[in-house]
Amino acid sequence: MFNFLDEIKNNLKKIDQKYLNNYNLINISGKILYVEGHCGLTILSKNIVAFKIKKGRVVVEGENLFLSELTFNTLKIEGNIKKVEEF
């Protein structure tokens, strides 16, 4: 199956592929945030959604946030996304 993200990774020859396999994060117009490779939720509220990734943590801030989809390794956040930070 064609994976758009894998295609981008394959084209980036300069970077070692092993550093590109931690997580994928796509922000669509600040309304939808699609995440691949999360390791579990840590905070779930209307203004903050946080989740673990390999060797770190991502915090999403915004308004009226909710998880429109949650599986074992993907999640989709919808709402007004203001900030996405990695710690």
Binding site: L44, K46, F66, L67, E69, L70, F72
Partner: peptide, 9 residues
Amino acid sequence: NFCLLNIKE
């Protein structure tokens, strides 16, 4: 084990 949808607080 499951796909959860529309999780709202």
